[in-house]
Every structure is written in structure tokens, then in C-alpha cells.
């Protein structure tokens, strides 16, 4: 039988750490990825800021980072993380690596969702003499908002997954809890406790994301 009087608080604090890492990464990678994704979209051939050089550079960088399995990226970035954050361990070190990994995933999701925007709508805005910056913010992003919310929701799940792997390098959180207190001690009950919390978190996020996207798209 497990001693939940000590494990309980540890699970709670691990959940808190996971939420912290996921939230900060989501905000950072969400914003930087949005910028990179918009950059990919607008510089694409035929789009409003068509620029072959910029598009090719962004595209190559994204394609270079994206296929690296996160656990390897985490290890490979070790020295860089140490330089930037000051340490290779703990939640903040994990956030740095997670942000790098997630940014490029966000960029692709953003680019793909923006490509679903009807070019005719952009043309209509151009015909009104709207500046390119305003077209990006008030037409392209506004028109793609619903699918973008679903894309970001999907991403939260990916980041949660990353945070669990980061547990392996001592980032704390639910991954750390499950690995150190469950897996390494052959204690399935502890592992499954972490799994259940993650499932509940993911369900909540998915539910909220679906609700929000539905409201935006009015379907």
C-alpha cells in the first residue's frame, strides 16, 4: 500500500510544476511561433510580402529543428541552455528547450491554418487600401482565428508531452513524478496517478479549446 499522505502533496506540487512549464512555454512558443508562422505565410510566393530568400531561410530552419525528437533536442541544447538560463536542470531549463522545440511546431501549425484563408478576402482588403500590417492582423489572423485556436489546443497536448520528457532531466513536474517515484520504484499505482492527472488536464484543455473555437466559428 502506498503512503498517499506524503505522495499526495508531491503529486500536487508536480502538477503545479507541469502547469507552470506548459503555460510559460505555451505563451513564449505561442508568440514566437505565431511570428515565425506569419512570416512563413506572408513571404510565400504570391502572398502579400512575397520574399523568396526570407521564406527559404525560415522554411529550412523550421524543417531542420522540427524532426529532432524532443528528448534528443533537450540533450543537444544542454550547453546552450546552461549559457542562457544558467543551469541545465529544473523547470526553467526545461522551459527554454521546450520553447525552442515548440516554437517551430507552432510556426507550421500557424502557417498551415493561415493558408486556409481565402485569398479573395485578402484581395478585397487590398482593394480597400488597407496596409499590409493591418491585413495581417485584422483580416488574415481574424479569418483564421477558429482553426488557430484548435491548432493551439493541439499544441498544448504536445507541450504537456514535452514537459513529461523534460522530467527525465530533472525538470520536475508530472513526468518526473511518474518516472522517479513510479517507474524506477516499480510502483505502477504512482505512475498511473500521474497518467490520470495528465489525462484530466488534457481533457480540460481540449474541452476548453473546442468550446472556444466553436464560439469563434459559430458552428
Amino acid at each position: 500500500m502506498m503512503d498517499w499522505s506524503t505522495l499526495g502533496p508531491q503529486l500536487l506540487s508536480a502538477t503545479g510544476q507541469t502547469l507552470y512549464m506548459v503555460t510559460v512555454t505555451l505563451v513564449l512558443a505561442g508568440l514566437i511561433g505565431l511570428a515565425v508562422g506569419v512570416g512563413l505565410y506572408v513571404t510565400r510566393r504570391g502572398n502579400i510580402l512575397q520574399n523568396v530568400v526570407v521564406y527559404t531561410i525560415l522554411n529550412v530552419v523550421v524543417n531542420f529543428v522540427r524532426p529532432i525528437p524532443f528528448i534528443i533536442l533537450l540533450a543537444a541544447l544542454g550547453r546552450v541552455t546552461e549559457g542562457v538560463v544558467g543551469t541545465r536542470l529544473g523547470p526553467n531549463a526545461a522551459i527554454f528547450a521546450m520553447t525552442i522545440g515548440a516554437t517551430f511546431a507552432v510556426a507550421r501549425i500557424v502557417e498551415q491554418n493561415l493558408m486556409t484563408v481565402d485569398p479573395g478576402v485578402v484581395e478585397a482588403a487590398r482593394s480597400m487600401g488597407v496596409s499590409r500590417w493591418k491585413i495581417i492582423t485584422t483580416v488574415i489572423l481574424a479569418e483564421a482565428l477558429g482553426p488557430l485556436v484548435l491548432g493551439y489546443t493541439f499544441l498544448v497536448i504536445g507541450i504537456t508531452d514535452m514537459s513529461a520528457m523534460a522530467g527525465a532531466i530533472g525538470a520536475g513536474g508530472l513526468g518526473d513524478f511518474a518516472l522517479r517515484l513510479g517507474y524506477q520504484r516499480f510502483n505502477d499505482e504512482v505512475t498511473w496517478a500521474a497518467v490520470i492527472v495528465i489525462i484530466v488536464l488534457v481533457q480540460l484543455v481540449q474541452f476548453f479549446g473546442n468550446w472556444l473555437a466553436r464560439r469563434i466559428m459559430r458552428r
Partner: peptide, 12 residues
């Protein structure tokens, strides 16, 4: 002003 065959209204 300009109008289009496919109307090109903002769906949002």
C-alpha cells in the same frame, strides 16, 4: 470600391 465574383466577404 470593388466587388467580386465570389463576393470575398469577411467570414469572421
Amino acid at each position: 470600391g470593388m466587388i467580386f465574383q465570389q463576393f470575398n466577404l469577411f467570414t469572421s
